[in-house]
Design a protein around this nucleic acid. Sequence first.
DNA 1: CAAATACTCAAGCGTCTGCTTGAGTGTATG
DNA 2: CATACACTCAAGCAGACGCTTGAGTATTTG
Lengths: 117, 117
Amino acid sequence: MGKQTNPPVCEIECVHADKVDELRPVVSALGGVGEFVTNLADDTRFKVLYALSQSELCVCDVAAVVGVTSAAASYHLRLLYRTGLVDYRRDGRLVYYRLADEALRPVLEAIRTYLSR
Amino acid sequence: MGKQTNPPVCEIECVHADKVDELRPVVSALGGVGEFVTNLADDTRFKVLYALSQSELCVCDVAAVVGVTSAAASYHLRLLYRTGLVDYRRDGRLVYYRLADEALRPVLEAIRTYLSR
DNA sequence: CAAATACTCAAGCGTCTGCTTGAGTGTATG
DNA sequence: CATACACTCAAGCAGACGCTTGAGTATTTG
């Protein structure tokens, strides 16, 4: 028989190995993308970030703007805080969240621009 | 009884209703974000897109650059094709993928800039 | 100090999704 | 025409993830 039905698909670089060799380091340098991109990934989280890029907001307001429960908003805000994308300050009973890094703004704007293309 | 342990958390806009009323329509106008952001979301898919923004590549090359099997690369490329982010051309046995929309490039660049901040 | 409020936390659920696997398609080659 | 190759497809699985729920914390208020 010797019927190799399914070889490992393609083990070597098929076409220009030069291009591959050139791009591979660049792309793997993007390694840390993970946390950041993953956070942008989610619909709700992107909306939260975009809202915060427009104005500092408390959890309830974020929930109202985005259209989820406060618990859900809190869940996402905590996630974003843990990955350093947002920061907060406490004022009495209220907790106000804001973008942690101004560098985020152009990214959000670039995406919004693309979306309204 | 009568112990309301867990009311729906916060049913009304707690703070500035004006801000909320202002932002809500803007944010829900982002509604269609879904497909696009979700596609950017994934680590692998972002790398694929970034690689394609640098050069047209066949599936095997994408796989080699990004570091996944050809089947996995094909899976992501098909996904990206179905949402209109990439396009392809066939040349003999090889299938070359490329960005479908130049408007994507600034978005990818904005993210990369942020990442190398 | 007790009650109310704004939020956080941890556990759990249902769902989604990235990747594998094995088969199938289209193209080139001997 | 048979074989090899590059890629696609569909099914399936394991792990991840969004959101809910109910309890817990910090702060204000009567």
